[in-house]
């Protein structure tokens, strides 16, 4: 399954609706994007992700040095 945000094929089913087979929720293992099967997903160009963007992404909060 293809992720609508990063175009990787690492998306999987996260869960199904608890009642009545109404929908499924998917998640991308590569960029963590998640969406519901009943949604009309249109990701703005500015929020699309690729490997380079993910590699250069900031970290919040920074990881402190290990204390011995």
């Amino acid at each position: 399954m293809k992720c609508p945000r990063c175009d990787s094929d690492k998306a999987r089913i996260m869960t199904k609706s608890p009642v009545g087979g109404a929908w499924e929720v998917y998640v991308c293992n590569h960029c963590c994007y998640s969406w519901r099967s009943t949604e009309n997903i249109q990701i703005s160009e500015i929020f699309k992700l690729n490997d380079e963007k993910i590699a250069n992404m900031g970290m919040l909060p920074p990881i402190p040095p290990l204390k011995k």
Binding site: M14, V27, C32, L60, P61, I63, P64, L66, K67
Partner: peptide, 26 residues
């Protein structure tokens, strides 16, 4: 993030970031 996982945003100016730093140092 998953059926049993949540992301959290501890901004450095907030209290939980102080506690998290102490845990992460160890």
């Amino acid at each position: 993030k998953d059926v049993d996982r949540l992301a959290i945003q501890p901004v450095p100016v907030h209290d939980i970031a102080i506690q998290l730093a102490k845990a992460e140092e160890k």
